[in-house]
């Protein structure tokens, strides 16, 4: 899984490509931690090229969301979730913890 991060004026954009499972989730956690430990808590996550995400991957997003939302200091928003992943998040009842946008521009612009 490849991860790129870009720092914008109002938020950070994280894009991951490939599969997020128990093997690769720690790498994603590190990418988010690098941002939040630097005191930035407004993050947009581009999922357009995520092919698979397990509950372990979703948990990384939820842990990051907890950190971002603490003291009302930020938010982790998600862009470009494909139908298969959205359906799985729905099944688990975990989609409600995120604002979801159809494209990256809207996600970044939401801050």
């Amino acid at each position: 899984m490849d991860i790129t991060t870009k720092q914008y004026r109002r938020c950070d954009l994280v894009k991951a490509v490939g599969r997020i499972d128990s093997n690769t989730a720690p790498k994603l956690r590190e990418a988010f931690e690098a941002i939040t430990s630097d005191g930035r808590f407004r993050i947009a996550f581009d999922m357009s090229e995520i092919t698979f995400i397990s509950s372990v991957g979703v948990w990384v997003l939820l842990e990051t969301q907890k950190i971002c939302k603490r003291y009302n200091r930020g938010d982790l928003v998600i862009a470009n979730v494909n139908e298969k992943i959205r359906h799985t998040l729905d099944l688990a009842g975990l989609i409600t913890f995120f604002r979801i946008f159809d494209d990256v521009l809207d996600a970044v612009g939401s801050f």
């Binding site: 397990s54 509950s55 939820l62 907890k66 913890f97």
Partner: peptide, 14 residues
């Protein structure tokens, strides 16, 4: 609420 969310059992539920 988000801050009370716990991970245990999510895989089995799915």
């Amino acid at each position: 609420p988000l801050e009370q969310l716990e991970f245990r059992g999510a895989g089995l539920v799915l």
